[in-house]
Nucleic acid binder design. Structure first.
Length: 764
DNA sequence: AGGTTTAACTTGACCACC
DNA sequence: TGGTGGTCAAGTTAAACC
């Protein structure tokens, strides 16, 4: 149910749609490309406020705020946010007139501008420099939703918000993964603000779905989060919040009883009786189970907050969900992303290329964890019958520590169901280890869209792939032998050292263990900040492949004989998504509006071309896209309908560009995304602001370095070959872009084509 | 018809508890 | 110290009332 208030606060859906789509001809006609892109760059609220009649008091206040914001110099742009309904800051009342109290949700937002600028000497950048990392505070080191534009102050002000030595500063550093507001800590598996925590708690389990009054793709930020409950809730789920971790009635009842008992009997410190994990009653309880990796660990486990449900040395605390692997526990603060001094925006001190205290849960790492769990599961099966849970947990522990970036942090998380099935499988050696391998495991598992191609193994792909190749009997035997030796040493490993999973499964670079040289892994492994930066890139590009359900662009896509006008409309989809992608980049948001515009204007066609390469299918000589069903591809022969003066040359150049990019690069979406960012940040020539130019240069270097580090993590020394081919490819790209402007000239029905691509190509 | 009051609801922040 | 739910204040709209 949409709240009456919420709906009244919003402008009409039509207005917003128009604004978001940028299809207002008046806007385009009046100021052309500048306005068109500004439409897209501007936040939805700004768009609404810019275009739509303000109908409510709250909107009037927001309008005033935005206007005030827009009138400020970009680098001093500050969104002063109040709770809805509170009196707005009067435009005439400045901070000089009346000191503004820092709001709890934005404790540093009123910091002087000088503190908001990126600080070269910030702890993060220093550490990044020490580690030869492309990371920096302003550019990559934040969550996708946080520390951007208006919020980055909370991450960048050394000595105020960003001082990791100050506990209060550490708290301020966190930004809500849902809305970007100031976060208080982990809630339901994700760093969120109080508001989103409460919202999720209240709504995640509601039986009836919300309705989105807009187009199901609302941006969620600290202002807009109130406007659409559906999109907000979806965002909650998409960033990983888990409804299974909301205590159900039964748990609450027990907790309540426990509290009562605790108070009455002063039993708070008493050890609870162990529970049998096979007890069917446990299945109804819903929070994750963790299998501790060693008996010792259980001794150090804090008593369960769920009172009396601690499961003892092996399985602790209560149980839950039917989903398979939960990688983080709500009760396991050791898995937390943000232990003091190690949180996201804090200094990178201590995070080297192979820090075992690495606390960041990157999507890449999550995938690796899952693969590790699968490998472990298969390994247990191939072993036949580990006779005790202790043995299993020791194996898990040993295997854990085989991961150089210790992603499991000592715990293997799984549900009771998963645990039981694992035990059952372990006890019946009939199953083939192959049986599990193709399974992606948990229902929660989402394949990493940026998974490297099959021949590019991530640090643990070697493990699972290795298992997948064990069909032949002698290989399986060899594997069993090696695994057995490995597990036999588990207890010793637990005490003494860090066993190497690569010794069993092959190492992360896909090399055979014969090829392993001391230090190889350590040199090429991505550090926490790099993984985080890659996640930010992945997050920014996450909307690029969303399916297109309706609209003129889809109709263009679905035509059998696509005209140049259709091609333009199809490009419009990608162009808009590229703008949206850019807005998710903290690095992009650091720039002034003019800087943003210049980058998009300069880099759009090149980014389109790079993306075109990834969608090119040589077998059908056409472009395919996940945006629409497979049969609606775009044949390369579409060039034949374009401006005959330049079409053949352009087609040839495109094919040259395709071959200039190594196939491995073309197939690796994350690498391609990074290349697109390198391209985006290579157009500083049209930028006037010296500050912007410096930033653009810096981010160009950073993304270049990050790409190389990423490739290095995949290919080791071989990554150099990509470094060598890239300049030539990018050179080609510039030529393509330079000659593209007249490509559609005289071939397009202007009135039917979307305005955005029309601005990039002369059509008349 | 227009203004005021009231009920119902959502949201965000703070707090106690473990 | 961090994550959970409970609670309350503050805000809104729609309905009821005058």
């Amino acid at each position: 149910m949409t709240s009456p208030r919420a709906s009244a606060e919003k402008p009409s859906a039509e207005s917003v749609d128009n604004a978001a789509s940028g299809s207002s001809s008046a806007r385009v006609d009046s100021s052309g490309l500048v306005n068109e892109i500004r439409c897209l760059v501007a936040s939805k609220e700004e768009m609404e406020l810019d275009k739509v009649a303000v109908t409510s008091r709250q909107y009037k206040m927001q309008f005033a705020r935005v206007m005030e914001t827009l009138n400020e110099p970009p680098e001093e742009k500050v969104i002063k946010e109040e709770r809805p309904g509170l009196l707005p800051v009067s435009p005439s009342s400045s901070e000089d007139d009346e000191p503004q109290m820092n709001t709890p949700e934005d404790p540093v937002i009123h910091s002087p501008p000088s503190l908001r600028a990126p600080v070269l000497g910030s702890p993060t950048s220093i550490a990044a420099a020490l580690h030869n990392s492309p990371l920096n505070q302003g550019g990559y080191g934040q969550s996708p939703t946080g520390c951007d534009g208006e919020n980055r102050t909370s991450c960048e002000s050394p000595g105020s918000a960003g001082d990791a030595t100050d506990p209060e500063g550490r708290r301020r550093q966190k930004t809500c993964r849902v809305c970007g507001d100031h976060a208080t800590g982990y809630n339901f598996n994700v760093i969120t603000c109080e508001s989103c925590k409460a919202f999720f708690r209240r709504n995640a389990l509601r039986p009836k779905e919300f309705k989105c009054p807009y187009s199901e793709d609302c941006d969620i930020n600290s202002v807009s989060r109130r406007f659409c409950q559906k999109c907000r809730l979806r965002k909650c789920f998409s960033v990983g919040m888990k409804k299974e971790w909301i205590l159900n009635e039964e748990q609450l009842r027990r907790r309540c009883v426990c509290r009562k008992n605790s108070r009455l009997n002063n039993m708070a410190n008493q050890q609870r009786p162990l529970q049998n994990p096979h007890d069917p009653s446990m299945k109804n309880i819903s929070s994750p189970v963790s299998v501790l990796t060693s008996p010792q660990m259980s001794l150090h486990s804090p008593p369960s907050r769920h009172g009396g449900l601690s499961m003892g040395p092996i399985v602790s605390p209560p149980s839950v969900t039917t989903s398979a692997f939960s990688l983080l526990s709500p009760t396991d603060s050791s898995n937390s992303d943000s232990p003091p001094g190690q949180n996201r925006c804090g200094p990178l001190g201590g995070i080297g290329h192979h820090s075992s205290t690495d606390s960041y849960d990157s999507a890449l790492l999550l995938q690796q964890r899952l693969q590790l769990a699968q490998a472990r599961q298969a390994a247990v099966q191939s072993m036949g019958s580990p006779q005790s849970m202790l043995q299993l947990s020791q194996a898990a522990a040993a295997a854990n520590r085989g991961v150089t970036v210790d992603p499991l942090r000592g715990r293997v998380m799984m549900s009771i169901d998963e645990y039981q099935s694992l035990m059952q499988m372990a006890q019946s050696s009939n199953l083939s280890p192959m049986g599990l391998n193709g399974d992606q495991g948990s229902p929660d598992y989402k394949p990493n869209v940026f998974s490297p191609p099959m021949n590019m193994t991530s640090p643990l792909n070697g493990g699972s792939n290795g298992l997948a190749e064990l069909g032949a009997g002698h290989i399986k035997h060899e594997f069993d032998e090696r695994l057995k030796n490995y597990l036999d040493g588990a207890i010793n490993d637990e005490l003494n050292g860090s066993p190497d999973l690569a010794a069993v499964f092959g190492n992360g670079n896909g090399k055979k263990d014969d090829d392993i040289h001391p230090g190889d892994k350590l040199s090429f492994q991505l550090n926490t900040a790099e993984l985080r930066a890659l996640d930010n890139v992945r997050e920014a590009f996450s909307g690029m492949n969303e399916t297109l359900d309706s609209g003129k662009q889809r109709e263009s896509f679905m035509k059998n004989n696509k005209t140049p006008t259709d091609i333009m409309n199809i490009m419009d989809i990608t162009m808009r998504r590229l703008v949206k992608m850019s807005k998710k980049l903290p690095a992009f948001n650091e720039l002034s509006n003019e800087g943003k515009f210049a980058l998009l204007k300069g880099g759009m066609v090149e980014m389109l071309t790079v993306r075109g390469v990834t969608r090119y299918d040589a077998s059908s000589n056409s472009w395919k896209t996940p945006v629409v069903p497979d049969q609606y591809n775009v044949p390369v022969s579409m060039f034949d309908q374009l401006n005959m003066d330049c079409r053949d040359e352009q087609k040839h150049r495109f094919m040259q560009f395709v071959s200039a990019l190594h196939e491995d690069l073309r197939k690796n979406e994350l690498a391609i995304s990074l290349i697109m960012l390198i391209v985006l940040f290579s157009h500083r020539d049209n930028v006037n602001s010296p500050n912007d130019r410096i930033l653009i240069d810096k981010h160009h270097r950073d993304y270049s370095a990050l790409l190389f580090r990423y490739l290095e993590s995949l290919y080791g020394e071989d990554a150099r070959k990509f470094q060598e081919i890239l300049p030539r490819a990018l050179e080609l790209l510039h030529v393509i872009s330079d000659h593209s402007i007249t490509l559609f000239m005289g071939t397009v029905k202007t009135e039917e084509a979307e305005p955005l691509p029309r601005e990039f190509f002369k059509t008349d």
